[in-house]
């Protein structure tokens, strides 16, 4: 079922493509602290890939390596089969990798609409001079074209009524949704979600889960997510990587992972005799 380049078909009948991103022997050190130790795994096109593990296991660091914010001390990252050199975060964004943050990182001084419009930055090419001209130089036309795409995402995530509200005034659950919208506006190939459901109540979690599945379904976006809620992870994801103390201790479908002895030990603890 897991042939390297062929992809596979999930239980619910979705076609998963070939490997879009591959992490090879990634090690990440901060001084003496080893955050990630020799981890390899791959991400396939169109799948929902979860990274789980106890607190401090190195999940967020892993996500930061994928998003290019950390450059791994050792190991290689392949994106679409090409080795990715050291890059600035904004260059990675242009490759089509977008993310949300564990503690919301929206632009508080801007409206919801402007926040989501910033997600379109990588698609907007008009420079300073044509911006200054606005109507005469086509910047307005470009703006409105992109506005149309953003409005589709606003519809999709059902946040039409808060379009013009300053982000600072929104409740937590909506902020999370706006952040997802901003990431989606970039039309990413890979979407990284860092604890998308942290601090939400059951209803909000249900909404968010539905949005994640819809995004994957509608846009075919590959999704990598970190989440603590096991119920959500097992329901949503196609394959799961389990980390503990910077090492990979399990990798496979939710069912495989659930029955993995190392994983059970890491989560429940091992009896010492």
């Amino acid at each position: 079922m897991k042939d390297m380049n062929e992809g596979y078909v999930t239980a619910d009948g979705r076609q998963i493509g070939g490997v879009i991103m591959e992490m090879k022997n990634i090690t990440l050190r901060f001084g003496g602290v080893v955050a990630i130790k020799d981890i390899s795994f791959d991400i396939r096109e169109g799948e929902i890939r979860a990274i789980i593990g106890p607190n401090g296991a190195g999940k967020s660091s892993m996500l930061n390596v994928i998003s290019g914010f950390y450059i791994p001390t050792e190991g290689e990252v392949f994106y679409k089969g090409i080795k990715r050199g050291p890059m600035k975060p904004y260059q990675v964004a242009r490759l089509g990798i977008a993310r949300t943050f564990q503690n919301i990182a929206l632009f508080d001084g801007m409206s919801v609409l402007d926040n989501i419009m910033t997600g379109r930055l990588t698609h907007m090419k008009k420079g300073l001079m044509s911006q200054a001209g606005w109507w005469w130089t086509g910047a307005a036309a470009e703006e409105h074209e992109n506005r149309e795409k953003v409005e589709k995402i606003i519809d999709f995530l059902e946040i039409q009524n808060i379009r013009k509200t300053p982000v600072g005034r929104l409740p937590y659950g909506l902020k999370k949704r706006v952040e997802l919208a901003r990431a989606l506006a970039a039309e990413p190939k890979i979407l990284l979600l860092d604890e998308p459901m942290a601090g939400m109540n059951v209803e909000e979690k249900e909404d968010m889960s539905r949005f994640i599945l819809d995004v994957n379904d509608e846009f075919g976006t590959t999704i990598v997510l970190i989440e603590h809620d096991m119920g959500v992870v097992m329901d949503l994801s196609d394959r799961v990587v389990v980390m503990d103390y910077g090492k990979k201790i399990g990798d496979g479908t939710p069912d495989e992972v659930r029955s993995n002895q190392d994983v059970i030990d890491a989560y429940l603890g091992v009896a010492h005799d």
Partner: peptide, 17 residues
Amino acid sequence: RKWMAIRDMDIAAEIIG
């Protein structure tokens, strides 16, 4: 929007492109 993004949260701005 780029200016304001840098003002409000420079790290997030950079990751967005």
